[in-house]
Design a protein around this nucleic acid. Structure first.
Lengths: 265, 265
DNA sequence: CTTGACAGAGAACAGTGTTCTCTATCATCG
DNA sequence: CGATGATAGAGAACACTGTTCTCTGTCAAG
């Protein structure tokens, strides 16, 4: 079934909901927002229990004592409901990472990197089906709808910001003999850096950071999807170690060594 | 729906099919094997077109001009059919990697590592839904059935064998200042090494190899599942670079430099 | 107060996985 | 060879699913 171009569902004649204009809130639209929320929490509950492919519109309707067709006043299809859950999952993941990163001292870059990555894994372990929804195979159709890519970049941008901050303050060790990027990859990295508003960050560092991020997602995927079954007694310990290896790859200085040769910012 | 303990489907009174005993092959069991194969190819065709969650038993039955219930003589459920496809996908992936690894000279460890990883990615790009089936979120139920974990380890063991071979022949550069493993992780690594029959390989190298493998899967997942959309014009180039970074992490010597300090085997 | 948009109910449709029962057909054993 | 029993497939049925209609009340605005 081909997916129509995604449109976040909004009522055709809905009043303006920008800002904090809660005074002019009619009772109907208020009930509407509340029910929309309730539908999503019911759906998320069922998602957590059964997984995305077992998520049934009729079941969430039963849960809310509604008739199935009534749900279509709020979400035009099951796929759009799933998309809303995807967006919320991205946000929850971003919240978790952001909060964890605020724990260590601002100057402790390795500690903040570790804390954020750990938070991502812990969230994933606690919400395996939601992680699968966003980083596993996309269930609704095959290509992510446009509205999901913005929230998707949040964790990613958080970590990149950390790398940039460490670099700017001269706390990033330069890799010994960094292989140069092939031309088109280097151009793409430069373009990414300018669109991400991270001028000055070397392209090689960006690529290393993305590489590390891919490793983090890969390690979590392997664990959650059963590919590490029986390998380690404590998967968190293994994850921590790989994250430290990746931190070293990116250039976060290990705590014991005095940061040796620094890149000039 | 809870999954019953997995049993690869075999007819209750089927004759012994071990070895190449094709003489005592009755016509019925021969037709049975052929139809089993045909069901799988029809299912795989539909899987490639629509994805795992859209794979419909009734559609493959229609494709084969059978009635849906007839399929249940060959696979006791849709999940078991998917499991068979999973196993075949693992095998196809293993074949691709194995064949690619045989390309470069036996002593060119970096080249063989690169070739194998590239082959994995190319196979994944060409069979995205099958990759999603095995390395994305597991669709049938939540835990991989026991019969899939053996074929799943094939690619993995192939790469580990390469690392071991490089180490044994002294072609693996030791990482500068390898952080020591925490105690339980080190024990687990030692246990893994003995069960995998790779004695002598340092536990830290094993962990680095698994880390690299997780990165490869993560990079492919990010690409296939849309998280790299719009980032790189040539994803293969990005992938190649990350794979080289990981090769360096594992200790495969770069081709230009003379391999500096070697581990004693 | 009237009008029109909206929320929800209910029925219906096409599709799904799965399980029955029933009838041929084939392999095997006496 | 012929009887017997296991098997393959057909067909109907059940309990679901997502989705789309139509129809009635209800709330908000002109």
């Amino acid at each position: 079934m081909s997916r129509a171009p995604f449109t976040l569902w909004t009522p055709v004649h809905a009043p303006c909901t920008l800002g904090i204009v809660s005074a002019s809130r009619t009772a109907r639209s208020r009930a509407r927002e509340e029910l929309t929320r309730e539908i999503k929490v019911a759906a998320r509950r069922q998602l957590a229990l059964e997984g995305a492919d077992r998520l049934s519109l009729r079941a969430v309707a039963r849960d809310l004592q509604m008739v199935p067709s009534a749900l279509y006043r709020y979400f035009p299809s099951r796929d759009e409901l799933l998309t809303a859950l995807i967006i919320e999952a991205y946000d929850a993941l971003g919240d978790a990472a952001e909060q964890a990163m605020a724990g260590p001292a601002a100057s402790d870059f390795l500690g903040r990197w570790l804390a954020a990555c750990r938070a991502v894994r812990v969230w994933a372990v606690q919400h395996p089906h939601e992680f699968a929804l966003v980083y596993g195979s996309p269930v609704p159709g095959y290509r992510a709808p446009a509205d999901t890519i913005a929230p998707a970049t949040r964790v990613y941008l958080l970590l990149l910001g950390l790398v940039n901050e460490a670099y700017r303050t001269g706390r990033l060790t330069s890799p010994e003999a960094d292989p140069s990027l092939p031309p088109t990859l280097g151009e793409d990295a430069q373009r990414l850096l300018s669109t991400l508003d991270l001028p000055g960050l070397p392209p090689t560092v960006l690529i290393r950071a993305i590489t590390a991020w891919a490793q983090v997602i890969g390690a979590i995927s392997l664990e959650l999807f059963g590919h590490l079954e029986g390998a380690f007694r404590d998967n968190a310990e293994f994850f921590d170690h790989t994250v430290k290896l990746m931190a070293d790859l990116v250039g976060f200085p290990p705590p014991d060594r005095k940061a040796p040769d620094r890149l000039v910012p």
